[in-house]
Computed example of a mutant assay.
Amino acid sequence: MVNSEKSSDILEILGEQVPLGVSKTINFNIANLYTSTKVEIPIIIERSKEPGPVVLITAGIHGDEVNGVEVVRQVISKKVNKPYKGTIICIPVLNVFGFLTMNRYFPDGRDLNRVFPGSKNGSLASRFAYQFTNEILPHADYCLDFHTGGGSRFNAPQIRVASDNKTGLELATVFKAPFTLLSKNLEGSYRATCAKKNIPILLFEGGKSQNNNKEVAIEGLHGVIRILDYLGMLQPEFSLHISENINILITKSTWIRAKFSGLLHIKVASGAKVLKGDRLATITDPYGKMRHVMKAQNEGYIINVNEAPIVYKGDAIFHISTALGDEN
């Protein structure tokens, strides 16, 4: 566990001072609309009277990933973000532009999660990443970032962490999502930037874009509660007697792709365990002439399902584990 504690009597962030024991919302001005209207991101800060770690909780780095936003919203609305000690900074929507239009990208067409740590003089997304990296991220001891599957792909609730990240693996065990997936840091991602700065980060994936799933939100909320308890930051009135997941470590996985184009009929849910030969889906043509059965090629857990009604040959349909680590 990282013991660094950046909390001090005065937290100086975005040009404002936030003393211990203070609750404050700071509007982070990132740009203006064509109409000259300011676009501002609320930064919700809760500080205990007692110094301790600083936890940064974010969502909506992709504007259409509503389920992640819902997790952070619940953390705030249930007052889980009021720490027993230390500081909790919540940013429910990082990409306000995309959130307004239910779009993954920034207005410049760039994926915010591929331009970190950003550039002072770059594109709009790159400038925002630069400001975030230099003005907000340095205050964090730990980061929790919430995502969903892209497009129509539904992710079973999971934590993604690099295999060589010992602290991340320890925290993933504490978070106790149904699955922990060993996953390399992508160049230009928020997670990769945190790794370079030696700031522990957990990336949570659950659900799909433009969709709000209650069960996924609960998994995310309970994971936050477990992490805060582990760090000694959880208020005592929050009960930890919540569902005790078995955390399954997935060390290797693969995608099962469509061999035909057509209408997709899913037969298994995301998160299900399947055996070799189990029927996963059927693909049919619109005319009742063709029917292809997709079967599992190995025993494993389905951690992502493409729920699109129509697919093309070669489309990724199921993400399935091919090797497992120890269960926790």
Score class of each variant (00 low, 15 high):
S8V: 10
S243I: 14
L56K: 04
L124W: 00
K78M: 04
T58G: 03
S261V: 13
V22M: 07
G122S: 02
I44K: 01
V224T: 14
Q210F: 06
L144C: 13
I159A: 13
K82P: 09
N247G: 13
A162G: 12
L221V: 15
F132D: 02
L249R: 06
E237V: 09
V69K: 07
G232D: 03
V80D: 02
M290N: 02
Q297H: 05
V305E: 02
G118D: 00
A59V: 03
I44M: 06
E46H: 11
C143N: 08
N29T: 12
T173M: 09
S239D: 04
P178H: 13
V293R: 02
I13P: 05
G271P: 15
F260E: 08
K267Q: 11
N113P: 05
F99A: 08
L263Y: 13
K120L: 03
G150S: 10
L169S: 05
N113M: 01
P236V: 06
N211R: 10
I13L: 15
G15I: 14
F28C: 14
D64C: 10
Q17M: 15
Y312E: 12
K295C: 01
A217C: 12
P236W: 04
G15M: 10
V293F: 10
Y84A: 11
A281F: 10
L202P: 15
I320W: 01
G68H: 08
D108G: 04
G52V: 00
P53C: 03
V80F: 05
K120R: 04
G277N: 09
K184S: 09
V161H: 08
L280P: 06
R191W: 11
K6D: 01
T35P: 14
I317C: 11
Y312K: 14
V93P: 09
G118I: 00
L275F: 04
K166H: 05
I256P: 05
S253D: 11
A31L: 08
I256R: 07
K289R: 04
V115Q: 00
D164G: 01
V55H: 06
N121P: 00
M1W: 12
L137W: 02
V66C: 08
G168M: 12
V55Q: 06
A156Y: 12
K252Q: 13
D278T: 04
I320C: 00
T251E: 11
